[in-house]
Design a protein around this nucleic acid. Sequence first.
RNA 1: GGGAUCGUAGUUCAGUUUGGUUAGAACGCCUGCCUGUCACGCAGGAGGUCGCGAGUUCGAGUCUCGUCGGUCCCGCCA
Length: 595
Amino acid sequence: MNFKTRTHTCGELRESNIGESVVLNGWVDNRRDLGGVIFIDLRDRYGITQVVFESSIDDKAYNLAKDLRSEFVISVEGTVRKRPDDTDNDKIPTGHIDVMIENLVILNKAETPPFQIKDNLDVGEDLKLKYRFLDLRRGDMQRNMLLRHKMAQLARNYFDQNSFIEVETPVLMKSTPEGARDFLVPSRLHRGKFYALPQSPQTYKQLLMVSGYDRYFQITKCFRDEDLRADRQLEFTQIDVEMSFVDVDDIFSMIEPLMQKFFKEIWGKELTLPIQRISYDDAMEKYGSDKPDLRYGLEMVTLNDVVKDSEFKVFKDNVKDNHIVTGLLAKGCGDYKRNQLDVLTDFVKKLGAGGLIWMRVKEEGLEAPIAKFLSEDEKANIIKSMNAEPGDLIFILSGVKYKTFDIMGSLRTEMAKRMELIKEDADPAILWVTDFPLLEWDDETERFYAMHHPFTSPRVEDLDKLASDPGKVKARAYDLVLNGHEIAGGSIRIHDAKVQAQMFKALGIGDEEAEAKFGFLMDAFKYGAPPHGGIAFGFDRLAMIFAGESSIREVIAFPKTTSGISLMDDSPSLVGDDQLKELHIKVREAKKQAE
RNA sequence: GGGAUCGUAGUUCAGUUUGGUUAGAACGCCUGCCUGUCACGCAGGAGGUCGCGAGUUCGAGUCUCGUCGGUCCCGCCA
């Protein structure tokens, strides 16, 4: 070896080390050549230490140091020294010392990197991703990776201490195309057959409960072949949890202290337990979302009662049809100009609204295009119900219940942005959303789908409705929501084969189909399945929020672009004819598809 | 599958509205000077397929069409 092993990292030396002979290894972060003296900021993932070259100390090292450039990898040996008066650097922890270098070894030179290795980098994401190995060298990214690591360790330790065991489940599994699109892996040994990559370890963890493992967790990759977003990747990591002999409250009281730890250890903030709960119906009615951001109020108000006798046709018809009339109060926005209101009208129209009713609240009453259709009583009641004052702006949307809530919810978040309601130092807002509907009707295929997944247990009191009125059945399902992001979701599962059969029936899945798709699970339930339930965190999203980032790519070491490409290794890529042949895939077709 | 937006030096951008001489700035890079800098300073310098391809035009970074790529959103994500 032509260099010495480091005695310290680049973030370690302090005044207490003065006089010590030390060896540092690292990357050249910056070079300041003042002629007779050369300063190098030496960097590793622990920090930066200034090392000094002077010809009076060592002429050979000094002359060699003249050739140092950014990102060269070097090993230096020297003596820790107190900095001369008035030359301390208070910005870094090592700023009160520097190291006078007696020996320099250049371990590797480096080309000028395509972007500077520095914090708060302003560079195109495609370049960052192409040179991810350099991007990851930056302090920002290293802090994110470290934060992610810490959270994973906190979770591991927490579950371990609570008697959970981590069990690895297969990555090659059976395709069960309910829900997201599967990634398929062609089988070489079995012509024409495919494995699927797991969308989640859902079925395996339930089987582990049947096996008596009682408390299971796993931090594991999941795969979904759907379009990407700022908070969605093709492959992502879940903290997957399952417990036996539990009900909803038991899951909550197991998970809440973990959240408290995250708050404390990562943010240094106290989280008071229990975490508040809101039912899905309330969340939709008040916030128009099943993952409401409660860092600000801006609650929606249902106005059906207020306008039930209205002469205004839109109100009258919607109330009559059991639809929804919902209002949103934008405090102090009464001065919004017509063009601003037009932009917002376009905004809701794009989401499927027929239009947007707006009313400016004046001293003398309501000023609105529809004012002439409303009685004085009605106008006064609207102002009163909305708790509006002169200078405010009222929005009203009406239409089919959940769709209208949903659109108003989008307008709510849009207005929160425009009104700058989320302050930089705002306290995080966390909540459980509970009592989700069990099923969701799909107009296109004209059948119900499981809102969560087909193993989710209905509420006991709703069991009889499963056959008669499936749309009304609520599930023992819940989401954990932080700052308007769904960070975890779970449910109590069905452990009774009879209930599961009813569920499949409601979903329009026949006995044969159920047997083919989930036979192994149904079979297992015949041999003593305990009541069980669990939850899974979207770990990337969780880390993103705790890191204060707005894209999960910032907390994933090697992410893909929005089009699912890895710019660094250029995957997905074409493969050789021989590989395709082995997998029984017709070469010509595969080639043609790729073009 | 759809919508929006961006693409000009190594990087971040200006220039595109209204087509017209040699496409600019900052940072970075290179050379020289400088013994206490830490966003070092000073002097000088190099660096461009204006994403790609067609078209309109006497003339295109600028206009039109197509295409590729990044980002954000809708659909989709049990």
